[in-house]
Computed example of a mutant assay.
Amino acid sequence: MLNKNLLIAAVSVLLSACATSPTGRTQFIYMSDNQVDQMGLQAFDSMKSKNPVSRNSRFNQFAQCVAYAITQQTGGQWEVVVFEDETLNAFALPGNKIGVHTGLINLVDNADQLAAVVGHEVGHVLSRHSNERLSQETAVSTGLAMVQAVTQPQTALGQTALGLLGVGAQYGVILPYSRIHETEADTIGLDLMARAGFDPRQSINLWLKMDKAAQGGQPIEFMSTHPSHASRIDNLQQNMNRALQLQQQAWSQGRQPRCAK
């Protein structure tokens, strides 16, 4: 009887945790979005207090211009911070937080290329990938512990929690997103940058630049947690015609971002 009750309870949990991503994929989402948002806010506050924030006005204006054009397509208020860090990286966290490294700003040729990275990272947030990973990892029992652990990044549990959020590389632990998550974020990010009026074709140029930089031995945390360039570019090319149509629609409606590097 006990086993039967446990089975019924388990099935109820699974059914209540079913969700659908923006691309129509079925997800296991058990933790509340509010919990995960709080984790994102705590992690971002911790990063701002422990990592140097750039005071370069040109870099800040450039990153904010690109990010705000992207997030106008998502709604909500987003905070954008540029960190003094020469690694080629950017990230977005639940709770509407975006971080961009100065190394990435130095690498990109134009706003369209930065928009490709920012759109991708925002795609992770819109798809609730952090919640999905945390839900799978915690499996209900340690959810509260994970929320609390974000405030203690020096602990093993804290590092795991930050890694699941997507910023673990900052603290010496890398937990890659799955290939499914990456492809989904690429698809959503491509559409976001196009709907904002950026040139989606520059996303391919960006990954080619990343590939060249990686071969040159530059530290690329962004690349170290993501799948191969070839598969990424192939997916982008498959979705390019739709993205170009979205860009044309954006331009016809007056959305042509003018973000100067």
Rank of each mutant, 00 (worst) to 15 (best):
V125L: 03
Q64C: 05
R55D: 04
S54I: 00
A185I: 09
Q245D: 14
C18H: 06
R232E: 04
D45N: 14
V125H: 08
V108F: 01
S46A: 01
L164E: 09
S203W: 02
S16H: 11
F28P: 01
Q202F: 05
F62L: 07
F222Q: 14
H181K: 02
L88E: 09
G123E: 05
A169K: 02
S21T: 04
V13R: 01
N51V: 08
H129Y: 07
L190T: 00
G172V: 03
F198N: 03
G216A: 02
P52S: 04
L246E: 14
Q113M: 05
E86C: 01
W78H: 06
G197M: 12
N131C: 10
T20P: 00
K261P: 15
L190A: 00
N60A: 00
G95C: 10
T183Q: 15
V167W: 04
G158C: 09
C259N: 04
G217C: 08
S178L: 13
V13F: 14
C259V: 11
K48P: 01
P22Q: 07
G75W: 04
L162I: 07
M210Y: 03
N239M: 09
K4W: 00
F198T: 13
S12A: 15
M39Y: 13
M223A: 12
H229A: 13
A161M: 06
G172F: 08
K97M: 03
P176Y: 11
L244S: 00
L244E: 13
N5A: 02
N239Q: 15
G168H: 07
A111S: 15
Y30W: 15
G217S: 11
T20A: 01
N60L: 02
L88Y: 05
N131A: 13
D211I: 08
K97N: 09
T23I: 08
L107K: 12
A43W: 11
G24E: 00
A9F: 00
S49Q: 10
G172Y: 04
Y30G: 00
P94C: 10
T187A: 03
K97H: 11
H181Y: 02
S141R: 12
G197P: 04
T102Q: 06
P176C: 12
Q170E: 14
